[in-house]
Design a binder for these strands. Structure first.
Length: 477
DNA sequence: ATGTTC
């Protein structure tokens, strides 16, 4: 039923499955499309197309793979009045995202002290499943975190106000309402602010390996051989609990509002219903928690660098940008020649606004929004910018990473710890991690080729490449 | 992703 309609575009027509309201569309190369066919991800694209109020297409980015309800890499926009909101279109780790920092240091300066630096980073940034941070919040204070996001962290002395304008949505969604977050979710969040987590979350010391757009790279303060830091983490147990709580609410709401579910994991409520608005407010709280989390960790990273390279380095480590991967946003987009407000779900997908978009800070007004694409462990990461093509084709969205080809279990079964460590060692990459299994789960073999994923979004005109970063050292949970 | 089966 799926048909290639353009070089990197595959489509399934309306009517291929009963209940479809729009066609399905996947952005992929031939290799990537075949990988998507192998798991249930394509079927999930079709399932999403049946949700009420979905506009134009059920989309998937080239890092598509199987997820809960929506595929990971899934993007869908819904009519604000007649459409739905669904936790399955956002994910368990609400506002899982990536932040890129740049240091004034070169690879030559960092390499001799890399081992010591990673030891300090590993100690200063708590990681691992269930890890607790150095901050112990009262419920009252946590409520402020949930409603203020990264701004709370800056007001407490974690980083600077200049950091905030370089975060998607300035690190704060204004519709957050802490009273919509359960007691249990809050309990899980009380001791997890400033923690990295586990799985694919990481903190990486990198060097700029190649520059594709000199002018934009220069404007962003990046030059060849310069050391960058990439941080990938989300809303931890708090976001997970918000998702769990509201999936239950949505199952009941789906029944109540007569939403026919082809997959229970797509449980949804009308966006404007009470249930829809409650989740909307709680989801924004979890998103804010994640932005506060990355802001606090940014401060820890600066302090760790200061311990190894001297105090004056601290103020010279700047934020390039911070993007959300798992989130829903109210945005203005063109639909049939008219500007409309729509609810965009990005599930393992990154916002990718072009130059001159009103939501961009003045420093990126002419470059387009920075888009940060982490590769798999030990492979390169990319810095891209958004292009007008993303507004035309993908609701201002693009891919979010390499995307899995193996499940975590499969990766553990097929992987070999010694071989993995040898191959990282050969590349000169140092690793600090508590869990061997986490490293096996994240082995490069378990992921697609990030170069190919980025090639697809570039060829489609969603993004332009600015720079590629290679890892020097990795901290993982 | 996740106090990895409240």
């Amino acid at each position: 039923m799926w048909k290639q309609v353009d070089k990197f575009v595959y489509e399934i027509p309306l009517g291929a499955k009963e209940g479809m309201r729009v066609p399905g569309r996947v952005f992929a190369s031939e290799t990537i499309f075949k990988q998507a066919e192998a798991d249930k991800a394509l079927e999930q694209v079709v399932n999403v197309a049946t949700l009420p109020g979905i506009l134009r297409y059920s989309l998937a980015m080239p890092d598509i793979h199987w997820g809960y309800g929506f595929p990971i890499g899934g993007v869908a926009a819904f009519d604000v009045d007649h459409g739905v909101i669904t936790p399955g279109g956002i994910g368990f780790d609400i506002n899982c995202g990536v932040r890129l920092l740049v240091t004034p240091l070169t690879e030559e300066q960092v390499r001799p002290k890399l081992g010591a630096l990673l030891d300090v980073l590993y100690k200063e940034v708590p990681s691992g499943v269930g890890s607790e941070g150095f901050i112990k919040l009262s419920v009252r204070e946590l409520d402020k975190v949930l409603e203020m996001g990264a701004k709370w962290a800056v007001e407490q002395g974690y980083g600077t106000f200049e950091d905030l304008e370089r975060l998607e949505s300035q690190g704060q969604l204004k519709g957050a309402d802490a009273s919509k977050v359960s007691k249990r979710a809050k309990e899980r969040g009380l001791e997890q602010l400033g923690t990295l987590g586990s799985g694919n979350h990481f903190l990486e010391v990198q060097k700029v390996d190649e520059i594709f757009d000199e002018a934009v790279a220069k404007q962003m303060g990046l030059s060849l051989g310069q050391v960058t830091i990439m941080l990938h983490t989300g809303s931890r147990g708090l976001g997970h609990q918000v998702a769990t709580d509201y999936i239950d609410v949505m199952l009941k709401a789906s029944k109540k509002y007569g939403i026919k579910l082809v997959d229970k994991q797509l449980a949804a409520a009308p966006f404007k219903s009470e249930e829809g608005q409650d989740y909307w407010a709680a989801m924004q709280c979890a998103a804010n928690f994640a932005w506060a989390n990355r802001q606090v960790i940014t401060d820890y990273i600066r302090k760790a660098f200061a311990k190894v390279f001297g105090n004056e380095i601290k103020d010279k480590i700047t934020v390039i940008y911070d993007v959300a991967h798992n989130i829903a946003k109210l945005e203005k987009h063109m639909v049939d020649g008219m500007e409309r407000e729509v609810v965009v779900h990005r599930k393992g997908a990154t916002r990718s606004f072009p130059a001159h978009h009103p939501e961009l800070p003045s420093i990126y007004e002419n470059t387009g929004q920075p888009v940060i694409i982490p590769g798999s462990m030990g492979s390169s990461s990319f810095l891209l910018v958004g292009l007008p093509g993303s507004m035309e084709q993908s609701w201002g969205s693009t891919c979010h990473g390499a995307g899995r080809v193996m499940s975590r279990k499969e990766a553990i079964r097929k992987g070999n710890y010694g071989t993995l460590m040898d191959s990282l060692g050969e590349k000169g990459i140092l690793v600090r991690s508590a869990e061997r299994e986490t490293l096996l789960e994240e082995a490069p073999e378990a992921y697609k080729d990030v170069d190919e994923v980025v090639h697809v979004v570039e060829e489609l005109g969603l993004n332009r490449k600015v720079a590629r970063m290679r890892p020097m050292g990795v901290v993982k949970g």
